[in-house]
Amino acid sequence: MNLTLKIWRQKDAKSQGKFEEYKVQNISPDSSFLEMLDILNNDLIMSGKEPIAFDHDCREGICGMCSLHINGHAHGPDSEITTCQLHMRKFKDGDTITIEPWRSAAFPVIKDLVVDRSAYDKILQAGGFISVNTGGVPDANAIPIPKADADESMDAAACIGCGACAATCKNGSAMLFVAARVSSLAKLPQGKVEGARRAKAMVAKMDELGFGNCTNTGACEAECPKAIPSRTSPASTASSSTLSSRTKSRTLTQTTEPRFLGSVVYIDN
């Protein structure tokens, strides 16, 4: 395949970037998108030019490092995959492909196609964990967990923190990511205990870092490589979670099906 690539080049965080055009030739339809970029980079290095910086690590869809907005889609024109799982057979010979970095105020470009996604790490640090006392490893089966809850938790835990949700959202909202992390923990008895505190802290951090406000467009879900459902979103962020009073939070976490309690009010007390 012969292709024309329009790629965002930007020297560093401070410089102004611009699109540059590159031609690649004899690309196998079976090569992956990132391999295609490797080939281009090889050519660039051979001809003494600066290679294109892009993020990647596992190249098997589990680490969440690869990003790229390809022809208008986060992770390219295929569903439920990451950029590293995208193959050139999804394109046609002679195509022009536009490759851009994530665009979101909270994900500033560092160089070329690489953006700083540490905002997601900061959200996790604010509460995306379970506090446990160190000691012997508890027996995995000591706490019975209903299959349905375990499934929902695992589905939400599939989030790889890639940032596609905020990068796609017209509101620049990180709600899907936060909801996924909040629900995956809150669905399990071990995580439920700190559910309200966790959700409050993570939402507050998300707002503080300059992500936008969710208006339920559902674009995040459509572009998420792990198909995290947007129904995970605001309401369940709230679900275990964001409440007007301590009493309510107690009843919520103990007795109710969280998702019906929906989104939210949370006021500092």
Binding site: E100, A105, G172
Partner: peptide, 16 residues
């Protein structure tokens, strides 16, 4: 929300 999208818009967008 417009501010959260950043200063530079995507050159190409597609319908999700």
């Amino acid at each position: 929300n417009r501010k959260a999208r950043g200063n530079i818009r995507y050159a190409v967008t597609a319908k999700e």
